[in-house]
C-alpha cells in the first residue's frame, strides 16, 4: 500500500513538471497553430540563466532563500521571454503566411541551432553543470511516505500558473485578442488587433513559462546540460497532444496522466526497461479512440 501511494506521489510530482512544460507548448499552439520545437531549448536556457544569475544574487542575499529564488526565477523568466520574442521575430515572423510545415521545420532548425550553439565550448560547453540549491529543501516523512518540498513547489506552481494562464486567456483584454487571433488572424486584424503584438506577447509568456519549468526541473534534478530540455520537452509535447493540443486544462491533464503512467511502468521490474515506449503506446491508443486528444474538440472539416 505504501508502495502504491509513494508511486502516486512520485507520478504526480513528475506529471506536474510535464504539465508545466506542456502549458507553454499548448499556448503557443493555441494561438499560432504550430508546434514550437524550440520550447524545450528555451527551457534549458531558463535553467542556465538561473545558473548564471544565482551567484550574483547569492552576493546580496545568501542562498538558499525563497525570496532569492523568486528573484532568480523572475529574472530568468524575463530573459527567456526576451529570447522567445526574439526567436519569433527573427525566425517565425517572416514565415507567417507560409505553410505550417515550413514553420515546423524552421522550428526544428531553431531548436538544433540553440542546442549546438550552447554545446560549443565558448558558450556553455557540453558537460553537465551542477545546479545550485536555490531554495531550502525539506523532505516530509509521513509514516513511510516521502514528499519532497521541491515536488510540492512544482505542484503548487503548476496549479497557480494554470489558473493564471486561464485567467489571462479567458478574462483579460489581451486574452480576448489572443483568442481572436487564434480563431482567424485576418478577421482579428480587421477588428483593429495588432497581430504582431499579440503573437510577441504569446511567445514571451510561453517562454517565461518555459524558464520557470526549466528552473523547477533543474531543482528536481540538479545537473544541467545543453540537451536537458530534449527529453522532458518530448514528453510535454506528448502530454499536450494527449490532452488536446491548444487546450490549457488538457495539457495539465495530459502531463499528469503521462507522469503517472511512466511512474507506474517504471516501478515494475521487467517493464521499467520499456518505460520510454509505454508513454507513446498509450498515447497512440488514446488518440485512436479520441483523435483530438482527451479534452480537444473534434473539428469538422469544412469543404
Amino acid at each position: 500500500m505504501d508502495w502504491l501511494l509513494q508511486q502516486l506521489i512520485n507520478g504526480l510530482a513528475l506529471g506536474s513538471i510535464y504539465a508545466l512544460i506542456a502549458l507553454g507548448y499548448t499556448m503557443v499552439y493555441g494561438v499560432l497553430r504550430f508546434i514550437n520545437f524550440a520550447h524545450a531549448d528555451v527551457l534549458m536556457l531558463g535553467a542556465y540563466s538561473a545558473y548564471f544569475i544565482a551567484p550574483a544574487i547569492h552576493e546580496v542575499m545568501p542562498l538558499p532563500s525563497l525570496t532569492g529564488t523568486l528573484i532568480i526565477v523572475l529574472l530568468s523568466a524575463m530573459i527567456c521571454a526576451g529570447i522567445g520574442i526574439l526567436i519569433e521575430i527573427l525566425a517565425y515572423r517572416p514565415l507567417r503566411q507560409r505553410p505550417r510545415l515550413t514553420v515546423l521545420i524552421t522550428a526544428i532548425g531553431v531548436s538544433l541551432f540553440i542546442e549546438f550553439t550552447c554545446q560549443h565550448k565558448a558558450v556553455f560547453g557540453a558537460d553537465t553543470k551542477p545546479f545550485p540549491q536555490l531554495m531550502p529543501v525539506h523532505d516530509f516523512n509521513l509514516g513511510g511516505l516521502v514528499i519532497g518540498s521541491n515536488d510540492l513547489v512544482v505542484v503548487v506552481t503548476t496549479l497557480i500558473l494554470l489558473f493564471g494562464l486561464w485567467f489571462i486567456v479567458q478574462r483579460t483584454k489581451m486574452g480576448t485578442a489572443m483568442r481572436a487571433v487564434s480563431f482567424n488572424q485576418q478577421a482579428a486584424a480587421l477588428m483593429g488587433i495588432n497581430i504582431n503584438r499579440i503573437i510577441s506577447f504569446t511567445f514571451g509568456l510561453g517562454s517565461a513559462l518555459a524558464a520557470v519549468a526549466g528552473i523547477l526541473y533543474a531543482l528536481k534534478a540538479p545537473g544541467i546540460d545543453p540537451l536537458m530540455g530534449v527529453q522532458p520537452g518530448l514528453r510535454a509535447f506528448i502530454a499536450a497532444v494527449l490532452g488536446g493540443i491548444g487546450n490549457l486544462p488538457g495539457a495539465a491533464l495530459g502531463g499528469l496522466l503521462l507522469g503517472l503512467l511512466e511512474t507506474f511502468a517504471g516501478g515494475i521490474s521487467g517493464l521499467s526497461n520499456y518505460r520510454d515506449g509505454i508513454a507513446f503506446a498509450i498515447l497512440i491508443l488514446i488518440l485512436l479512440f479520441k483523435p483530438a486528444g482527451l479534452l480537444g474538440k473534434a473539428t469538422v472539416e469544412k469543404v
Binding site: F237, V241, F280, A281, I284, L287
Partner: peptide, 17 residues
C-alpha cells in the same frame, strides 16, 4: 500534428523494443 506525434511515437516504440 496528431499524425506527426503518432508516427514519432511509433518510431520510438520500435527503438525501445
Amino acid at each position: 500534428d496528431y499524425l506527426a506525434i503518432v508516427t514519432l511515437g511509433f518510431g520510438e516504440i520500435i527503438r525501445v523494443v
